[in-house]
Design a protein around this nucleic acid. Sequence first.
RNA 1: GCCCGAGUGGCGAAGUCGGUAGACGCGUCGGCCCUAGGAGCCGAUGAGGGAAACCUCGUGUGGGUUCGAGUCCCACCUCGGGCACCA
Length: 812
Amino acid sequence: MTTSETETSKTERYAPSAIEPKWQAHWASSGLNDTPDESDKPNFYFLTAFPYPSGDVHVGHWYAYAPADCAARFIRMHGRNVLFPMGFDAFGINAENAAIDRKMHPAIWTEKNMAQMRDQFMKMGAAIDWRREVITCYPEYYRWNQWMFLKFLEKGLAYRATAAVNWCPRDETVLANEQVINGRCERCETLVVKKDLTQWFYRITDYADELLKFDGLDWPERVRVMQQNWIGRSEGAEIEFPVDGHREAAIRFFTTRPDTIYGATFMVLAPEHPLVAIITTPAQKAAVDAYVAKARSESEIDRTNEERAKTGVDTGAFATNVFSGQRIPIWIADYVLATYGTGAIMAVPAHDERDFAFAKQYGLPIKEVISVDGIEHDALEVAYSGSGTMVRSGPYTGTSSEVGKRTIASEAKKTGIGKPSVTYRLRDWLISRQRYWGTPIPVVYCPADGMVPVPLDQLPVVLPRDAQFTGRGGSPLGQLPEFVNTTCPKCGGPAKRETDTLDTFVDSSWYMYRYVDTKIDTHFMNVDVGKKWLPVDRYTIGIEHAILHLLYCRFVCKALRDLGYLWFDEPIKHLRNQGTIVFKGRKMSKSRGNVQAPDEYVRRYGADTVRLFVMFMGPWTEGNDWDAAGIEGTSRFLHRVWTIGVTERSGAGSRDADLDRAAQRTIQKVTEDLEAYRFNTAVAAMMELSTAVYHASGPSRDDATDALVLLLAPFAPHISEELWQRRGGTGSVHTQSWPVFDAAAARATTVTVVAQVNGKVRDRLELPVGLPDDALREAALASPKVTQAIAGQPVARVIVVKDRLVNVVTER
RNA sequence: GCCCGAGUGGCGAAGUCGGUAGACGCGUCGGCCCUAGGAGCCGAUGAGGGAAACCUCGUGUGGGUUCGAGUCCCACCUCGGGCACCA
């Protein structure tokens, strides 16, 4: 190389706008990211949640995807054949509302946004295999939603039922329980109301127990606990008490505390309980009817507000507590929920706060049956819900409450009035929606044959294009006679199609199986190819999906397994969640008008800088408040790496042991940090090394620079590729092997040992590594600063921690 | 109310099998450099005191254990997340 060329390369500035598009085009045309289904390397499926094409690309997308891309590239450099696919969760209400607002068809709006998102991924330099793109709003995809629905229907896992369901008045559709957050619509935050409607459900509750188990899964504790709380398993017993004068009408209730049964001094039914109309006495009928009507008219929020005083009405009827033999009144009250357990309770005011409050309110008897000290007390001040010894409990008096729980339940079973039982908080998944932009539910209604599934060979039921979007008056599909009117597959007579569509969470519950072969049109998945990839090795997704999506896709996996279509129990082996990125403490959204766009930063600093910055901001799992103030720091770092990287190799010269060690330590640190998704500290380590390299020369510098370029590759793919090429590397930097560190070479030869006197640092000694304790002790005691601090006091003891510290303790 | 998680400089944060608190970066202050650029380099930067050497204090609050506590234990406060009349 001539002097002038050296001069040129030395002075050429880092210009991301020149190198980034160049490499993006090159990677695309060379097929660098096209993953074969088989190669000489082991397969590895790295999944990251596909986006909703909402049209507002914001920094949160970079926060989610740049680190995921980095983690996937890291594994690729470890000699794995990494599948890193992308697609779009393209159905949904946003598109439909946009259609109403802008008079633009949801399909057009969605296509436009997908193009924008693809462009964003391209600018990011993400290593996506675009040949495998999955788009849920295309019939080739959603026909398999319909197929699964029909399979579930056949096996009784899908059913239609009338129930009090969640209704969002603004979105004009029902919602699953999981989509109601604090009584509000998960999407638009409108207050949700209850409506009695006939809707479609998936029987997720069949899998409640299995969904509680996470054996063998590497999932964050946080997510496991959230799902377990959501499923809400309670063990206890189901028992029934007969109603006086109604031979057929026993009241069945669930309790977690059978041991308190002698203290059940009254019963409470939910206002909606079917027995209410049957057992209410004529004298109480007017009051009961009024109360039921009032309860029905109230919002869920009001009804479940714990702050407000308990209310209820006496039905006038009585039941018999078959254990105590007492005749006890039956009340109705809205603090008992129709949807939990059996919608009825035995009220034990002495040992349940709510029953206690209700008994106080209406002057009902309170009878202590569990005592901490085994002695009977009168006039309880508060309910005692802990354990203790049973009192006033007939033959069980003196038994511990823990034992009593089991013996009462088995006694109830013996006498045929009950049995041990388990209840869950989890409700079945409501999957139908009264919206247009979704998968049509493939059933028809025939006057002669009733509900008839669309035969599998008639799939897909294609979503008609020409709907009217008024935003009012039910599902747009219902207003299309050419869609609604059809013939019955059974009798051939006129019939009407179902006009509801599937929840978009159905779409996303199985998309990971479609990526393996997006073209296959005979099955939802190409099983031969799927066996090479599934289950998913690693999945990254925002913590906000902890319950919704992540619970649904576990359920769908288990259901498909039981239908014989999958060979594993869990879809995702290893899960990590990024925290939420907010702006000034608030979630970013278009409706709030606080969306922070990345484009300006990408244009000004380059994609590599933005990638590095979102990873450097703080711990990824914690999320952060967006503040671009520090972006200069990561930009400067890349400028420095550039300067180092384009500098001519020194070649000859003596080695620099300190720099060699620093390089080894950095390789070790970055490797360990990336394994644990600690992107921020990995970047910090590379920054440190870059400073050391900058001031060094000789072969050690050359080697450290080579290592730095490789370490940086997953984080900043463009500059790394450019420098790799300029430094004479062969092939792409992204197909190189990850540098292996030498732990022995990383170890320092000298160490700073802290000399303390009574726990206070008095001196720092540079000493060779591995000195014996005696030598450390002598070195510390020889320090004038230590001697001064001891100030002639007798030394009581000296604590020595190898290679770390010496603490001289004086008599005090 | 219950269950998680977290409180560290002006700011984002490091550090948690107990052992140099504040790595790395932003910002600020001071200095340098040239090809004056959407460059770069060097130094300082927790608080207080001191001319300096150094000293004292310091990780939400109050106790405790320990030679030694950001880290462990107890009680509490604040913030974030989840659940919430679930029998």
